[in-house]
């Protein structure tokens, strides 16, 4: 009899412990999904929710304060998201707070980020609709990268054509680099210019000592000396 009672007690403890563990697990999961605390609803209307799903987290100032409760397409270009937010965060969430869809890390789930607004505005009330804006998505970045790479391709094609022309000796720069006759002529021209400049200097020196032109040169020098 004693043995049977002992067995029953042990069995009772065993089942109670298993049941308690199960209930505790359910409680913690439910608490994470805002099932047991006081909550309020906030809506946001987005053009693109980037794969956000029901149950994804809502963050405010980097803290998980709620979950996405429902997602509803209301027109061909707008999606309404209903969020369940912890009541304790309500006093910090102002009317002009903004919602944005972000990502939890590089590979993580999508989340709704509520950006804190300026102090002084009234706190959000139940079923308020908050302003939303679209974050720069990976697609946007890829589109810009594509435009940039297209431009780079055009520029390199042009550059290649220019270098090709230079190599073939076409145009002034091409002739300068590739035509040896042009280079010799240019070299000779520079020698001639140098000689011409030397001759001109001698002529001017001679002219300054000339009787007829001495007065003109003196007048030209005197104003500088007077100053």
């Amino acid at each position: 009899m004693k043995k049977t009672t002992g067995h029953k007690v042990r069995l009772g403890i065993f089942i109670s412990l298993g049941f308690a563990l199960f209930i505790a697990g359910i409680y913690f999961i439910g608490q994470k999904q805002q099932l047991f605390g006081n909550t309020f609803h906030v809506n946001g209307i987005f053009k693109d929710i980037s794969g956000l799903q029901v149950g994804n987290n809502v963050r405010f100032s980097g803290i998980n304060v709620g979950i996405v409760e429902s997602i509803q397409q209301i027109s061909d270009s707008t999606v309404k998201i209903d969020m369940l937010i912890d009541e304790r965060s309500r006093k910090f969430m102002k009317k002009n707070s903004k919602a944005i869809i972000g990502s939890d890390g590089l590979m993580g789930n999508k989340i709704v980020l509520i950006v804190p607004a300026t102090i002084g505005k009234k706190a959000l009330v139940d079923n308020d609709t908050i302003e939303t804006f679209r974050a720069v998505s990976m697609d946007d970045i890829l589109i810009k990268v594509k435009v940039t790479s297209d431009n780079a391709a055009t520029i390199t094609a042009d550059l290649s054509a220019i270098i090709g022309s230079i190599r073939e000796g076409k145009g002034t720069i091409g002739k300068l680099f590739m035509d040896s006759t042009f280079a010799q002529t240019l070299d000779q021209t520079l020698v001639n210019i140098k000689q011409g400049a030397g001759g001109f200097k001698q002529n001017m020196n001679a002219a300054s000592h000339n009787v007829l032109l001495r007065g003109f040169f003196k007048k030209k020098i005197n104003p500088k000396e007077k100053r």
Partner: peptide, 10 residues
């Protein structure tokens, strides 16, 4: 049933 639960479970 209780005896078997004890033997099978506990």
């Amino acid at each position: 049933l209780l005896k078997q639960s004890y033997l099978i479970g506990y």
